[in-house]
Amino acid sequence: MALNEIKIGGLGGQGVILAGIIIGKAAALYDDKHSTLTQAFGPEARGSACSAQVVIDDQAIAYPYVTRPSYMVTMSQDAFAKFSPELREDGVLIIDEDLVKPTGLPPGVKVFGIPATRYAEEIGRKQVLNIIMVGFFTAVTGLVSEQGTRKAVAESVPGNTVELNLRAFERGFAYGKELRAQRS
């Protein structure tokens, strides 16, 4: 596998950074790959568009930044508008289809949508939206392993929410697997 650039965008407070940490951690700690996470730090408060950037590679990563992501996850319309122009023309866009209506994408972009907000509500906690997206991302892209990412979820969320978050992960993962099967 060559170098892969991933950008995750959403609103502050949605757990964008945590989603990036989980994906990066899965790659670096459990999949025997290298990964670097950078995040846009700013004085912005909750509710503004923010992003996490993850680079995954088989080899040590020198340049830490994402320049032309081949994978993008967006969890809000604002984040989509702000970040989607950076996506490669043959890239993969992963969205919460309840929150993002993609427009103006180059024809080569593959879009994968999941009703993550609805699922999060079903699970009973809106905050697990990001973990549903992580599960979905794992299944759709295959960039990180299912086992590794599950482990990274369990290790990265507060102790009393592990079970809940793992359910969210499974939900996203199952939906992604099904969708991929349908598409191929």
């Binding site: 950078t38 995040q39 990563i61």
Partner: peptide, 10 residues
């Protein structure tokens, strides 16, 4: 520097 301080790696 800020980048090294805030970047996350293994």
């Amino acid at each position: 520097d800020e980048v090294v301080g805030h970047m996350t790696e293994k």
